[in-house]
């Protein structure tokens, strides 16, 4: 083949490569703002905190039960939207053996309490510690974020943004059947 032909094909090749990369970027790649959790499939970090009503909690005490671990804050608008979803799921599934935990991050205690009262939240609610160790351990990127932890204490999934009830339904019906 002539040298000029090789260069020509090389040029066309580069153009097509750039084209493919961007087509992939537009149509197939995930939203650049969504960050995958690196902890899915791994053992969940232990939590040490005291709930708003003064009960010390750890994850270990719930071993053998599926856990819905939700991070929220009173200043986050999306958390208002999902507040009733979580509470309703709690009413339905806690009697069947699931555990719902809500951790308030970067929030003032009074504001959190107002939020809890306003939305009538009754599941286990606790503040993150002063320097946000729990949220850092879980690699939280924004609120709300929800982790689904199975009976063995392994993180099965992370949901960024408001949670849907069918996600909870699906996870818990599977976990509670076993």
């Amino acid at each position: 083949m002539k040298k000029s032909n090789i260069y020509f094909l090389l040029g066309i090749g580069i153009v097509l490569m750039i084209f493919i990369v961007f087509i992939y970027g537009i149509y197939f790649a995930s939203n650049p703002r969504d960050i995958p959790s690196s902890q899915i499939g791994k053992k969940a970090f232990e939590i040490h905190t005291v709930t708003f009503d003064g009960q010390p909690i750890t994850l270990r005490q719930y071993l053998g039960k599926p856990i819905i671990l939700n991070f929220w804050a009173s200043w986050c608008a999306t958390c208002w939207k999902e507040a009733h979803i979580l509470e309703a799921a709690h009413q339905e599934y806690t009697p069947q053996g699931a555990v719902f935990i809500g951790i308030a991050i970067n929030d003032e205690r009074e504001a959190s309490l107002r939020f809890i009262k306003k939305y009538n939240k009754t599941y286990i609610l606790a503040p993150d510690d002063k320097t946000g160790n729990i949220s850092l351990d879980y690699g939280v990127t924004a609120v709300p974020e929800t982790f689904l932890i199975d009976k063995k204490g392994v993180i099965q999934n992370k949901i960024l943004g408001a949670i849907h009830d069918d996600i909870i339904d699906q996870f818990l019906s599977k976990e509670l059947k076993l």
Binding site: P36, S38, Q39, G139
Partner: peptide
């Protein structure tokens, strides 16, 4: 410490 929790990202 951070990579372990957040990933390489």
């Amino acid at each position: 410490y951070f990579v372990k929790r957040y990933g390489e990202w």
